[in-house]
């Protein structure tokens, strides 16, 4: 039953991803490897759409994945159901955890254990997101799936140049770096079409 599996996979993502947004990406990449529901390339496309539309990034990506998986199995209506199931799966742990935490608000805030856990969780989250990023770079820039295939990687200069340009624009150009991500996504799309990526 694909919907039950979707719910469980997203429940797991909601329960273990700390900090929301990009923190869900490592779980989605793991999901792609474990289930074959979508490829790494599709995941990158979904992140781009989620970044360009209103709503929390994590919720948008979950909806997109749910729709994609449902559509593959049962067509458009199945896709809508998949979107709902994935999103509900993602938010269910939040609802449970927050309702429990709300009863112990002060204890939770002052707990040495909670503080300690996050001392370890924060760098782990950075490591996971970084590794997910490496996976997406390997696929979209080097056209390989894992680091072990590096011998067969072929790097195209135009990809590297675009990456360098976006990196510079989003970090070092005053005013431009504050622009909404959608502008950089649109710019990349135009470059992709013009230079036949």
């Amino acid at each position: 039953m694909i919907y039950l599996r979707l719910f469980i996979e997203f429940f797991k993502t909601g329960l273990f991803s700390v900090g929301g947004g990009m923190a869900t990406i490592p779980f989605l990449q793991d999901m792609s490897r474990a289930t074959g529901w979508f490829t790494s390339a599709q995941l990158a496309d979904m992140i781009a759409v989620a970044e360009s539309t209103p709503g929390p990034l994590g919720v948008n990506t979950a909806t997109y994945v749910g729709f994609t998986v449902g559509t593959q199995e049962y067509g458009m209506l199945g896709g809508i159901l998949g979107a709902v199931v994935a999103t509900v799966g993602l938010v269910t742990p939040s609802i449970i955890v927050i309702i429990v935490v709300a009863y112990f608000l002060d204890k939770f805030r002052k707990s040495r254990y909670v503080d300690g856990a996050f001392y370890g969780l924060r760098p782990a989250s950075v490591g996971l997101i970084g590794a997910a990023g490496v996976g997406i770079v390997l696929m979209s820039v080097f056209r390989i799936n894992t680091v072990f295939e590096f011998a067969s990687a072929h790097l195209e200069l135009k990809h590297l140049l675009l990456a360098a340009a976006i990196l510079a624009l989003t970090n070092w150009v005053p005013k431009v770096k504050k622009l909404h991500p959608i502008y950089f996504i649109l710019l990349s799309a135009v470059v992709g079409v013009v230079f036949r990526f």
Binding site: A48, V137, L162, T170, I185, G192, V193, F197
Partner: peptide, 15 residues
């Protein structure tokens, strides 16, 4: 082609 370009942009966002 457009999405191939966008994927490069997503890599930078994650970085």
């Amino acid at each position: 082609h457009a999405f191939a370009g966008i994927r490069v942009c997503v890599c930078v966002f994650i970085l």
